[in-house]
C-alpha cells in the first residue's frame, strides 16, 4: 500500500478520536481543535515511516495526539480558552452542549497528566494502552483512573 493510501485510511479511521481528544484539551473550542487535529495529522504523515507496528496504530496515534496537543497548549498557555456552546440549536441540543461545557470545565481543572489519562479513558482506550501512551505502569494507571473518575463525577454533579 502506498504511503498516501495508508495515510488516507489512518486519517479516515482516526479523525473522530483525534478531534475528540483535541476538544478535551481545548475546552471544546471547535475551531482550535480542528487546527490542532490538522497539526496532529501533519505529524502522523511526517512520522508514518517510523511506525514499525510494535504497538497498535491507535496507541501510536494517541501518543502523537497527546504530545502535539500538549506542545501546542504550552505555546497558547497565555491565551484564555473560551468554552464554546453552539447558539443556533434546539433547547435539547443546548442542554447537551451545556452538559459538555461543564464536563470540559471539570476536565480543565485536572493536572496535565490526569487530564490526559481521563481523556483516554473517556475514549474507551484499554488501561494497558493508556499506560503505554502516558509512560507509567498499568497498576498506577488503574489507581489514578479510579481517583480521577470520582473527582470528575463529583465535579460534574456540582456544576
Amino acid at each position: 500500500m502506498s504511503k498516501k493510501l495508508k495515510f488516507h485510511k489512518i486519517y479516515d479511521e482516526n479523525y473522530p478520536k483525534v478531534i475528540r481528544l483535541c476538544l478535551g484539551y481545548l475546552s471544546g473550542n471547535e475551531a482550535l481543535a480542528q487546527d490542532m487535529a490538522q497539526e496532529v495529522f501533519i505529524k502522523v504523515w511526517q512520522y508514518l515511516e517510523d511506525f514499525r507496528g510494535e504497538s497498535n496504530i491507535s496507541t501510536w496515534i494517541y501518543r502523537i495526539t497527546v504530545n502535539t496537543c500538549l506542545q501546542e497548549l504550552r505555546k497558547k498557555k497565555n491565551k484564555k480558552l473560551k468554552i464554546e456552546i453552539a447558539s443556533d440549536e434546539t433547547s435539547e441540543d443546548t442542554e447537551i452542549e451545556n452538559q459538555f461545557a461543564s464536563m470540559y470545565r471539570c476536565i480543565d481543572k485536572l493536572s496535565v497528566e490526569n487530564k490526559s489519562i481521563i481523556l483516554l479513558e473517556l475514549e474507551g482506550l484499554p488501561q494497558k494502552e493508556i499506560a503505554e501512551v502516558i509512560g507509567i505502569n498499568h497498576s498506577a494507571v488503574r489507581t489514578r483512573i479510579h481517583r480521577i473518575k470520582d473527582q470528575l463525577s463529583k465535579c460534574v454533579k456540582n456544576e
Binding site: Y47, R63, I64, V66, G135
Partner: peptide, 10 residues
C-alpha cells in the same frame, strides 16, 4: 524529539 514516544518520555 519523536512525538510518538510516551508523554512522560517526551
Amino acid at each position: 524529539f519523536k512525538l510518538h514516544q510516551s508523554m512522560l518520555a517526551l
